[in-house]
Each structure stands twice: as structure tokens, then as C-alpha cells.
Design a protein around this nucleic acid. Structure first.
Lengths: 208, 208
DNA sequence: CGACCTATGTGACAATTGTTACTGTTTGCG
DNA sequence: CGCAAACAGTAACAATTGTCACATAGGTCG
């Protein structure tokens, strides 16, 4: 485990890794599992070691809006932010693949800020990255129409899974953009006419 | 100045306030001034001591979308986040009133995290508050139509300036919601019919 | 007063998005 | 096989939002 930690979080000092090994626990989730629910109490900061998650904001009427992906080597900023006040989660996170997480109790999360320079830097870096990601999301919905948002969505998905072959149903996309399947079908058709994508059953081929 | 600092930032320890006095400078801006531009280099973390600012995200086509207000006793999270890497600003900030700011050089911003418990807590608190505010903004544009967004906007403005009499033109609202004046006029008329507001020239009276 | 500027109101229409309804196609499974 | 469930396409229409054109009203200033 030490080696894999070292590989996934290359900036961590040896002492920090030692501390993590001694104090943190590991949890695993299956693809599709909900890892964190809106309103749930947060007791741990979560570091991702394996698999991917999607982080959603939930609307009052059951909508779930995709905000960003989390990859191995990253951490859930919300879990850090809430942790400092032992608050409830403002977001919902879902496993894309099988996921493995390191759970750091919030008392240690704070303690390590003082003790481990590399932890401090990691936390600050995480805040920054997530904040910037959130700003990009605001951009995409504040300034762009659905066609551009769809392109943005597909690109992000492609980046996240590292493939141009996206295993997505129209319904799934619609849900995560908080619109309806018909709208997505329509826009995808237009994208196909513009030769940006090629549509197949259950997957979409990005041509760009 | 010590007294006013103590009053505006009541959580700060005396040593921290002393450090601020010895090391930070004060800058003032007039109402309407742009305090920070998108793309501008950030060298300081900014604490607000007097007046209000609005923080915007700018679109490629010149749109400016209002994200949140900053009040005395608060700090610009973006300036903290960017500071840690001496990055350029992702946002634009504008003075609403005459504004007075404390500029903390970024080297101290980091140093104090280790030395002053109350500074550390303030910074973490600031991250949290801004993150949550940003999540609310995402909500309002991801899940709500323009009529509800307008109500949300008016309510926030009213909260920020502590009055039900909003000195706003339709054009100003439209710009900050990234839509057109006509749309705002229409929706305000409907709100007036529902007796939520009373419209006057150059100001809007909130009735709720 | 008259010229001019800003703010607002409004009607007509276009474009985008949301909704309903129905079709066909593929897949998995008893 | 036959059937149900999930996925996809599409037409028709409604609702919302964006755009253009123009009217009106109030305020400022020479």
C-alpha cells in the first residue's frame, strides 16, 4: 500500500504517508454506488486512490447536475471544507468505476495542516482546483446555450475516461445537464450533421 | 485602526492584528471602481474593512455574471486561492460603495497560516463560505428559470444593501444576470402584477 | 423652451428549450 | 420464441427567452 500511495500522491512526504497508513481507513465502492449523499454528515476527508467519481449538485425537484469528476490522486474538496465544521454535505457523489477511497478523520485533517507541509499544500491545491473547476461550470451554464454545454460535457467525459468512445445514453446525459432526453437527441443529431460525433446505440464516438 | 480591525474581524487574535498592522497596507477605491480584473496578477490577499464589492465572472463576449457580494469582515477567496500560486485572477471585482481594503502580501498569507490559529481558521472559513455561495449560484442557474433567478437576484441585493428599496436599473440587472433588458422588464412587470414588487423610475421596491 | 439622454414599456417575431405522444429497434430473459 | 424494458428518433406543439423596432416619459442643460 505504501508504494501505491506514493505513486498516487507523489507530493506526499514519507512521514505523511506513514501517518496516513497508521490512521486512515480504506473504503471501497462498486460502480454506480452513491458515495456521499446531499445532507449526509461528513466525518472524513476522502482521498481517491482508485476509480473515478462524479460530483453532483442536487436540485429540489430531484434533478442532479454534474459538476465535476474526481480522479485518483485527487480529493473531495467538499469533504475538506465541510470537515472543518463537521457539516453536512452540500453535494452528492457517485462512483463511475469501482472506487477505492482513503478516509481521513477530520481531526487529523486539521492536525496535519500544521504538521505536514505537503499535506497543507495538497489541501490548498485541492481548494484551488475545485474552485476553478466550479468557475468553469458557472461559465458553461451562465454564458452558453445547451448545444455548447453538450459539447463541453462530452469533452469533459472524454477527458475523464480517456477515450473518444463514450458509453453514454441520451437519458444519462440529459439528467446530468438537467434537461430532457429529446433535447439531447436533437442536439446530438445536429452535431452528427456537423460531423463532430458519430452516433451508435449506447455509445457516442467523438470525432474531434 | 487597531480598534476598527478588532471590530471588523472579531475572531482575529491580538498578535495577528498586530502583525497585520505592521505588515499590511491599506487601499481605497471609489464606488464603481474595478478592484480586480480578470487575468490580472494577484499579489495580495484582500480583506474588506469598509464598503461592499461585487464579484463577477466574465464571459468571452463581454458578459459579466454576478456571483456574490463581499462585505466588511470578509475576504476575497479568489485572492487567497490564487495567491498560493501567484496566479492570475479568474474573476472581476467591482466596488459598490467606497471601499477600503487591507492588502496582505501573499508570502505572509502563507506564513500566518502556521503562526496564527485565528488566521488559519479565517482562511478555511472563507474558502467554505465562498464555495457554498458558489454552489448556490450553480443551483440558481442550473435548476431555475429566469423568473426565479430574478427573484433570487433581488433578494440577494436587498440582503446585501440592507434595504427593500433597490436602486437598480433594468439594464443593470439584465447585465448581471446575463440576459437582456426587455426580458427583465417583462418579468418585473409580472412580479408587480403578483404584488411582489412595486416599480419606480430607477428603483424597485420589494414588497415581500 | 427645445434638444438630448437615459430609463422604461411593449408588440411582433425568431430561436431555443421543454413536453407530449407515438414509433421503431435492440437487448435480455423466462 | 415472444415479451418486456431500455434506448433512440421524430413530429407537433407549448413555453420561455432573445431580438428588433419603436413609443413614451422624465430629467438635464444650454
Amino acid at each position: 500500500m505504501q508504494d501505491s500511495l506514493k505513486k498516487t500522491f507523489p507530493t506526499f512526504s514519507n512521514e505523511l504517508i506513514q501517518d496516513i497508513q497508521n490512521n486512515a481507513s480504506i473504503q471501497t465502492f462498486k460502480a454506480g454506488d452513491v458515495i456521499m449523499r446531499t445532507g449526509q454528515y461528513i466525518n472524513n476527508t476522502m482521498l481517491i486512490t482508485k476509480g473515478q467519481l462524479k460530483v453532483f449538485r442536487e436540485g429540489e425537484n430531484g434533478g442532479e447536475f454534474l459538476m465535476y469528476y474526481l480522479q485518483p490522486g485527487q480529493a473531495c474538496a467538499v469533504s475538506m471544507i465541510c470537515a472543518s465544521k463537521s457539516q453536512t454535505s452540500q453535494i452528492m457523489a457517485k462512483a463511475v468505476d469501482d472506487v477505492e477511497l482513503i478516509m481521513v478523520p477530520l481531526s487529523l485533517m486539521e492536525k496535519w495542516m500544521m504538521e505536514h507541509r505537503t499535506w497543507y499544500e495538497f489541501v490548498i491545491f485541492t481548494y484551488r482546483i475545485r474552485f476553478e473547476e466550479l468557475l468553469e461550470v458557472v461559465d458553461s451554464i451562465a454564458f452558453r446555450a445547451m448545444d455548447e454545454r453538450l459539447e463541453f460535457y462530452l469533452k469533459r467525459h472524454s477527458d475523464a475516461c480517456g477515450s473518444k468512445d463514450l458509453k453514454l445514453s441520451h437519458q444519462e446525459i440529459a439528467t446530468e445537464l438537467n434537461t430532457s432526453r429529446e433535447v439531447i437527441s436533437r442536439l446530438l443529431k445536429k452535431m452528427e450533421q456537423r460531423e463532430l460525433v458519430k452516433l451508435h446505440r449506447n455509445h457516442i464516438e467523438l470525432l474531434t
